[in-house]
């Protein structure tokens, strides 16, 4: 049987984590599935989903959005502070019941290759705030996630906040490809941002989900795309696609096959380059 500790505040929670090895439970939508596989296992659970300190949504002076780790996906969708380019992927996660329970922090810490919150966080260079009893760290999401289900979190540490630098001018393209239109794990996903102002194209970001052990993003390829757009036709579309092709490593599993994932992922990229970027 599991022993569940429900702390009154963040301080108590961190104290508990410092004192004993416990599994953190936020919305439980991933956790409970895993726990079901170990019936009767003895372990301590720290429940944090109710902690108000971890539910803050705010934008600071530097235009950085902070999302408390246990904000549910529904709360994020309802917040007027959260821009559309963050809401689009979230709106397609699970179903209403799942979004009411599932948290953004849980999606990050679960580190599934198919986690739908992740591509946008990679594209936006999100930073994670990790707290422990009497200590605090910040880490880039790409350093935090090491592989499927693998995160760099020390004993006693907990994710408390996700910090996302915003730009008003970001426009996003999002495609989730699943087997059905709700409650479906991504077979592959595509997230891209462009920052087009009167002075031209300022930036482009591309993140490919569910196509490698972690989200695929390449700053180098993005620079080449920018160059191509700015009239240096040295790199053609097919060459850009080939760059990404070398970075992805799709798998066969119970939901789809390697060939389909690769074809569709690169097809979405190509469509973005030709239809949105007009390269």
């Amino acid at each position: 049987m599991a022993r569940v500790f429900r702390p009154g505040n963040l301080k108590e929670a961190l104290h508990f984590l410092d004192a004993e090895r416990a599994a953190v439970l936020a919305g439980g939508t991933d956790f409970m599935l895993k726990a079901g596989r170990y019936p009767g296992a003895e372990f301590a659970v720290l429940s944090i989903g109710h902690l108000h300190e971890l539910k803050r949504i705010a934008i600071d002076a530097a235009n950085v959005l902070s999302l408390g780790a246990v904000c549910t996906l529904s709360e994020i969708l309802e917040s007027p502070l959260v821009p559309l380019f963050l809401k689009l992927p979230i709106a397609e996660i699970g179903s209403p019941a799942i979004r009411n329970a599932a948290t953004a922090g849980g999606n990050v810490c679960n580190a599934s290759p198919a986690g739908d919150v992740l591509p946008m966080l990679y594209a936006l260079d999100a930073t994670l705030v990790l707290k422990s009893h009497g200590d605090q760290h910040e880490m880039q999401i790409r350093d935090f996630i090491q592989g499927p289900g693998l995160i760099r979190i020390a004993a006693g540490q907990m994710l408390t906040e996700i910090r996302i630098p915003l730009r008003q001018t970001w426009r996003c393209t999002w495609r989730k490809v699943g087997g059905r239109r709700a409650n479906s794990v991504s077979k592959t996903s595509f997230y891209a941002l462009i920052d087009r102002t009167s002075r031209g194209l300022g930036d482009v970001r591309i993140a490919l989900g569910a196509i490698a052990p972690t989200v695929v993003r390449s700053r180098e390829a993005e620079r080449i795309i920018l160059d191509a757009y700015r009239g240096k036709p040295s790199q053609r579309c097919t060459e850009i696609i080939a760059l990404y092709d070398a970075l992805i490593s799709p798998i066969d599993d119970s939901r789809s096959c390697r060939d389909y994932r690769r074809t569709v992922s690169l097809g979405l990229l190509e469509n973005f380059l030709t239809e949105v970027m007009r390269i």
Binding site: S95, G179, R180, R181, A182, N183, S184, V185, S254, R255
Partner: peptide
Amino acid sequence: LTDYMIPTSLD
């Protein structure tokens, strides 16, 4: 029922 997919109301 995650992997064996039956239609949801959205489908």
